[in-house]
């Protein structure tokens, strides 16, 4: 593997670490589709900041995009709580509208802006090692710094809010009553998810955002029975798919996010077949006569 290959795996692995940690909670909270929605809803924020400042990858971009991501989550929560629309329909209503605004913004005002839709969707992980910044005199890929910071921040978040997050996911009424400020913790989780989705969106594109948030966590859920181990396994699954996906992409000369997505889907299928109560075991057992 060339240094660039290693760098790509490390960037993807770091990102999958933070996504899997938060994704574990989202999967258990039945909010697994929020990152998908958020990663689409941030587009108008990116366009708006570009129109205002002329930059497409600055701190302002991340803030602006996060604001739209949070707006998407808030709109979704309001619709859901009002009870008028089911939570699935609420999601399906909010994010396409915001994504549409983003596309119209690009075609109308920012067509020359290099915010091209393809890179937003597919991401440009391939070129991530080439875009560098200077850090303590060294040329370091910008994505590495950004995803590294995001990972540290996510780990801190999950460690500090462990109790309210897991208690409110398991038993929301108890968590609310026990004074853990569970609702506040739940909202903070969504804000952090929005922020991370933006960072991930910028580094790896919309496809991998969805994959990294959901698939490793869903895989780990099939294999484990404790939240702690589930999150560790999810992170491991993220790294394995990053490595396997990158190797596969090099081997067949294909899109890296696409192959990483396929690799993590492959791990999921393995877990589905071979995990505890896996389909393969069940099939074997049903063949054997009951003793």
């Amino acid at each position: 593997m060339s240094p660039d290959d290693v760098m790509i795996v490390v960037i993807a692995g770091l990102l999958s670490t933070s996504c899997a940690l938060l994704g574990g909670f989202l999967v258990l909270r039945r909010q697994a589709l929020l990152p998908d929605a958020v990663s689409h809803a941030v587009l108008p924020g990116i366009v708006l900041i570009f129109l205002l400042t002329g930059e497409r990858a600055s701190a302002a971009t991340v803030l602006g995009a996060t604001a739209f991501g949070v707006a998407c989550v808030a709109g979704f929560e309001w619709l859901r709580r009002s009870g008028i629309v089911g939570s699935d329909a609420a999601l399906a209503l909010v994010f396409p509208a915001l994504f549409s605004l983003g596309i119209l913004g690009i075609t109308r005002f920012a067509s020359g802006a290099h915010i091209d839709l393809d890179s937003a969707i597919y991401g440009d992980l391939t070129f991530a090692p080439l875009r560098t910044m200077s850090l303590a005199g060294l040329d370091v890929p910008t994505s590495l710094v950004v995803t590294g910071c995001a990972t540290v921040a996510t780990i801190l978040f999950v460690v500090l809010l462990w109790r309210p997050l897991h208690a409110s996911t398991f038993d929301p009424e108890f968590a609310e009553l026990s004074g853990l400020r569970a609702r506040a913790a739940g909202r903070m989780l969504l804000v952090v998810v929005a922020g991370l989705a933006v960072v991930a969106f910028d580094s790896v594109g919309a496809i991998l955002v969805v994959t990294f948030f959901i698939v490793p966590a869903a895989t780990a859920r099939l294999l484990t029975q404790r939240l702690g181990t589930m999150l560790v396994v999810a992170v491991a699954a993220g790294w394995v798919s990053s490595l396997a996906g990158e190797r596969l992409a090099t081997a067949i000369d294909s899109s890296i996010p696409g192959t990483i997505g396929l690799a993590s889907a492959g791990l999921f299928v393995l877990a589905l077949l071979l995990g505890r109560r896996g389909l393969a075991w069940r099939a074997l057992r049903s063949r054997r006569p009951e003793s």
């Binding site: 258990l28 398991f170 038993d171 108890f174 484990t224 029975q225 939240l227």
Partner: peptide, 12 residues
């Protein structure tokens, strides 16, 4: 709480 409000399949 009532059993229905608890996430039954939570890994715990």
């Amino acid at each position: 709480p009532q059993q229905e409000t608890v996430a039954r399949d939570f890994p715990i």
